[in-house]
Write a protein that binds this DNA or RNA. Structure first.
Lengths: 215, 215
DNA sequence: CCCAAATCGATCATCGATAATCGTCGTCCC
DNA sequence: GGGACGACGATTATCGATGATCGATTTGGG
């Protein structure tokens, strides 16, 4: 078998591995994921693989039918676009509440914007996306609404933002600067302005993605 | 009774059974759900029970830790309240789009409101909630945004609305009538009015729940 | 030659058993 | 008396094997 650094739960290791392969494209959209084949390849039994696939199905990364197995779910252009109105609605609500709770304390937010710039300098797309997502996540977390956070997390933003970034082909510094008006609104403790600005920020990305080339 | 048809996959039957017991209170919040015990009780092996519990965990009805098993997740008052801003945001977006797509065709929506009244006459709380949820679901479906629909469904409204209805102790006819302004806005094809009315409708419920007695 | 039923191989769903892990409780040493 | 340690029971995580179901292929009849 492969690397035998036995972490805690085998299922989790398998899940991470499969997810990594899906996101990297090693497993292509539509490709079948045969439980027994993956199991023997990893040197485990069918059970952990099966559980990992089930998790990934509920996370919307694979889809499966009874007795017909699992396959990699294709993420359509349409779906990427459809996320933005949902994000916009959720984050608008989050922002309004977060402004009150943060009360002008924007250090963490500012740090993410600066980290975005550094990542752009280094041409590190992965880091760029990571800090972009972190910026938005900070706001949703600061809302203090646990359900809101869980709902937002369920959108799996981090996994899809990379695709978006690639498809729109925007400059890293430009993306980072787009966060500045949101930051300013938070600093000025203007809840309505922050909510509106953030919503527009997201709708803006949605529009750009809509205009981008379909794969 | 919903479980009249013998479904094909055992896991699904087990899942439905456990869910029913959780919602009915047969399994109390915090109670441990021992895989082997449930399995022997149902006459199956551990595997289907295990998979059912895993599904329910990702649906937020149970929580579990590695090697420590699963237990029924407690739904706090706070969480019930927190749902409403999220619903309000999602359904506001949905309504705006749904008005355009429905283009004044409100027959289905009207049917649900009438069904709510009939259920209220019959004192059938279950049916009441079912049609209430159906009304809102029709709107979200009509938005045409698949991601929005999935996000909304992930909130498991149907399961929690029953609790809300009980805790607020509102009259069935009153609840049904609260849907009328939304219906009218859809009939008049006024997207902004529909969106705003629906958001207020939901915020109104959230407020009432906040004022209700904690369990 | 074409269509439908029977068959086959591949794969999933489930099973029963085993290994791994946790919390508990008694014991020992101080 | 108290705290650390280790064996024990309970339960989960994983395994290997078996039954069930699907899609494709073959076979037989028209």
């Amino acid at each position: 078998m492969g690397t035998s650094v036995t972490r805690v739960v085998l299922r989790e290791q398998v899940k991470e591995l499969i997810l990594e392969r899906i996101l990297s494209g090693a497993y292509e959209p539509g490709e079948r994921l045969v439980e027994t084949r993956i199991a023997s390849e990893l040197g485990t039994s069918q059970a952990p693989v099966r559980e990992a696939l089930r998790d990934l199905e509920l996370l919307r990364f694979v889809e499966s039918e009874p007795f017909r197995g699992a396959r990699v779910r294709a993420v359509s252009q349409e779906e990427l676009v459809e996320i933005y109105p949902v994000r916009a609605a959720l984050e608008e609500v989050a922002a309004r509440e977060a402004v009150r709770r943060l009360d002008g304390d924007v250090d963490a937010l500012e740090a993410e914007v600066e980290a975005m710039h550094r990542a752009a300098d280094a041409n590190d797309l992965h880091a760029q996306v990571e800090h972009d997502v972190a910026f938005h996540r900070l706001i949703v977390e600061a809302s203090g609404n646990q359900v809101l956070l869980e709902t937002w997390l369920a959108l799996r933003i981090e996994a899809r933002t990379i695709i978006t970034a690639v498809r729109t082909g925007l400059d890293g510094h430009a993306i980072a600067e787009l966060h500045r008006p949101v930051l300013d609104a938070f600093r000025r403790r203007d809840a309505e302005l922050a909510a509106t600005t953030l919503r527009r920020h997201l709708e803006h990305f949605g529009e750009m993605l809509k205009g981008a080339d379909s794969p």
